[in-house]
């Protein structure tokens, strides 16, 4: 039982000085949680920056992310990640529309847009799985980075001393940070599904309050927001 509910039961004086920011506690809590989470991501990205600044060489993203799974050839730099980015942006838009419909009490609209959002999230995760698989096939792992100064090299060549490997931190940071982001997307999808089920069951219709959609929406947009920076640091710079 929330404190607000207790108040309503015990006797309400929530006039005057309460709710000074015109935001209910749940949403505010979600915001502070997101700020906290932002610091976690910021720390990880700062680790990325620090280790990259301490490395004497770093692979050029154009030369690493230059394929589309299922399409032959290595001449499509950044195309696949652009698709992933768009999937995430569009799923953010559908989420906003769900929130929008929620505010207008439009249950059907909420369900429709939530379904689209979940599909978008799942699609993003699928794409990420494809990209990981592809990079692992190329030889990228936590222990080896095939993207050396002289192009794609194999572990054997490096062991034999005929080629130079790239900094292993590249793979470690890539898998760790995109993995951490992917975990957030995954949990976002799970939460979205729960919320969708609740919406279908009319939980929010009954309480006349679709704020839960808004809170979950904030989380979803945050995941999108983090991707902007992951995209910036791994794929652009």
């Amino acid at each position: 039982m929330s404190a607000e509910a207790i108040t309503q039961k015990v006797g309400n004086i929530w006039g005057g000085g309460t709710r000074p920011f015109n935001v209910r506690y749940g949403k505010m809590m979600m915001w502070f949680f997101l700020i906290s989470d932002a610091f976690t991501f910021a720390t990880l990205l700062i680790v990325y920056g620090t280790l990259r600044f301490s490395a004497d060489w770093w692979p050029e993203p154009l030369n690493v992310f230059n394929t589309i799974p299922g399409v032959h050839g290595n001449s499509y730099p950044l195309v696949f990640v652009t698709i992933m980015t768009f999937i995430l942006i569009v799923s953010s838009v559908t989420m906003v529309l769900a929130v929008y419909d929620g505010h207008h009490g439009n249950k059907k609209g909420v369900i429709k847009w939530m379904v689209y959002t979940i599909i978008g999230g799942a699609a993003f995760l699928g794409c990420q799985a494809l990209e990981w698989t592809h990079l692992i096939h190329e030889g990228l792992s936590l222990y080896f980075n095939p993207f050396g100064p002289d192009g794609l090299v194999t572990k054997e060549a490096v062991m034999a001393g005929t080629a130079v490997a790239g900094p292993t931190h590249f793979g470690q940071l890539f898998f760790f940070i995109t993995g951490f982001h992917g975990t957030h997307v995954l949990s976002g999808v799970v939460i979205n599904i729960i919320i969708l089920v609740n919406t279908v069951n009319g939980v929010y219709e009954k309480s006349g309050d679709y704020e839960m959609i808004e809170k979950v929406g904030l989380y979803w947009h945050f995941v999108d927001l983090v991707w902007v920076f992951v995209f910036l640091l791994f794929y652009l710079i």
Binding site: F21, N22, V23, S92, V93, M95, V96, E214, G217, L218, H221, F222, D224, L225, V228
Partner: peptide, 12 residues
């Protein structure tokens, strides 16, 4: 994203 999607532009 923050201002529009996350609604910050419309908060106090």
């Amino acid at each position: 994203i923050t201002a529009e999607f996350m609604h910050m532009k419309y908060e106090t």
